[in-house]
Write a protein that binds this DNA or RNA. Structure first.
Length: 267
DNA sequence: CATCAACAGAAGCTCGGGTT
DNA sequence: AACCCGAGCTTCTGTTGATG
């Protein structure tokens, strides 16, 4: 999708990525973003559904600013101190008129001139008053994406399709995984060796723990089963040890980020 | 000119698999 | 069992072009 052209409604704020989908929506200078990987949610469909759910939550909980609020905000190039009011200067440098101008819509732009010749010093005050009247006619919220309003005003319906919970990184099975279970692989040190199944789990800052189950001792099926069970125990120990008090500053920031994201989702 | 959607990619974490 | 490297995945920030 070329830049500047809005996505179709279903994909509002959502960009497809090689690994899944990314949601990115900006409200009043704050960017709300979250990524939904295929691997984390089980399938492309689940990743998209959950991306849409999260986006809808953001759109509902953070509405655009009022059009009037936006119109009243002073731009850096404003020279009069009142938004929508400016003076028209003649080529001689003399102020010709004070003007009140308000953009109501594409086919309705309000504009009233107050010539200084006819009205004298009152022209400026009259223009400011006129601008206030013009703003009275400006209603509603800022228009953003064509789909924004429909999403915001639609009731948050119960999803027809069930949502699968997000998996932790440790639970994600890479496309290169050969065993079918993340963190469990078959090892064969050399040609003559019958090999063994290895359960291995990495923990940031602590390195990895691993345990091997020899084919010679347990047989291929039992060794694999034991490795899978060991991997589950390793994950359990890892999750139990991941207490907030033990997190590194960076991890803590991430944890807080995730929490605020979820809180937003609950709004 | 500010704000937004859409896009792009760097950086860091984690895992798989080979090797010792 | 441990180490190492390359690659997958996530997080986060920067850029571009449209719009009002």
């Amino acid at each position: 999708m070329p830049r500047g052209i809005p996505n179709p409604a279903a994909m509002y704020g959502i960009s497809p990525r090689a690994w899944g989908f990314e949601v990115s929506i900006v409200r009043n200078g704050t960017r709300y973003y979250k990524q939904f990987g295929r691997a984390s949610y089980g399938s492309e469909e689940q990743a998209l559904l959950q991306a849409q759910d999260w986006r809808d939550g953001v759109v509902r909980s953070v509405p655009p600013v009022l059009r009037r609020t936006r119109a009243e905000k002073l731009r850096v190039n404003n020279t009069t101190g009142v938004s929508g009011v400016f003076c028209q200067v003649a080529s001689s440098g003399k102020i010709r008129a004070w003007v009140a101008k308000t953009y109501i819509g594409q086919d309705e732009i309000l504009r009233t001139d107050f010539p200084v010749d006819a009205m004298g010093h009152a022209a400026q005050a009259l223009a400011i008053e006129e601008r206030a009247r013009q703003l009275e006619r400006m209603a509603g919220l800022s228009r953003l994406h064509p789909a924004e309003e429909a999403i915001r005003t639609a009731p948050a319906a119960c999803p027809a399709e069930p949502r699968s919970p997000k998996r932790s990184k440790s639970e994600i099975r890479r496309c290169t995984n050969s065993s079918g279970v993340s963190g469990v692989h078959f090892k064969s040190p050399n040609v003559g060796h019958p090999g063994y199944w290895l359960a291995i789990t990495y923990t940031a800052g602590k390195g990895s723990v691993s345990k091997a189950f020899s084919i010679k001792e347990h047989g291929p099926d039992t060794a694999k089963r034991l490795a899978i069970a060991e991997r589950e125990r390793q994950l359990e120990r890892k999750l139990n040890a991941t207490d907030v008090s033990t997190l590194s500053p960076r991890q803590e920031v991430r944890q807080q980020h995730a929490t605020t994201s979820e809180a937003r989702q609950d709004l």
